[in-house]
Amino acid sequence: MKKLVIKGRTISEGVVEGIALVSKQNFSFSHGIDPYTGNICDKLHEWIGENINNKILFFPFGKGSTTGGLWLLEAVRLSNIPKAIINLEMDPIIASGIILADLLYNIKIVALDRLGENIFDLIETGNFIRIETLEGKINIYFEND
C-alpha cells in the first residue's frame, strides 16, 4: 500500500479501513441517500446505484437543504453508516450530522477536510483505503494501480 502523510484538518478522528467512493461532484445527503438502505438515490449524481454503508466518501462540498444532517443521522440510526467523510471544506450541515451521530448513537464517523484538491486525483472509487489520525497528523494508506 502507498502511504500518504497529508496536511489537513481532522474534524472527527479515528482509524478506519474501507472502500473509497470518490466524486468531484458536490453531494447532499438530503434526498441524496435512501436512509433505509444506504443506497444513493440522487438521480443526477454520478454515485447513483452505489451504497454509502462502510464506505469512505470523498466529495468536495455539501450542498442543498439544511435537513442533510438529519438524513445522514437517520441512515446512521438504521445502520447504514459511512466509515469516513472527506470534503475539501465540510459544511456545518454535514458536521452537525456527524456530531449528533456520536452524541446520540455513539457512532464515530471519521471526518476530514482541507486535504487539498490533489486527493481527488490520487484516490479512485473502489480503492481500498486506511485512514489514521493522531494528534493532528493524518496518514492515508491506499492501494491502486
Binding site: 444532517g69 438529519l70 456545518p92 452537525s96 450530522g97 456530531i99 446520540l104
Partner: peptide, 8 residues
C-alpha cells in the same frame, strides 16, 4: 444568524 440544522 447562521443557518442551523438538526439538533443544533
Amino acid at each position: 444568524s447562521n443557518r442551523t440544522t438538526i439538533g443544533v
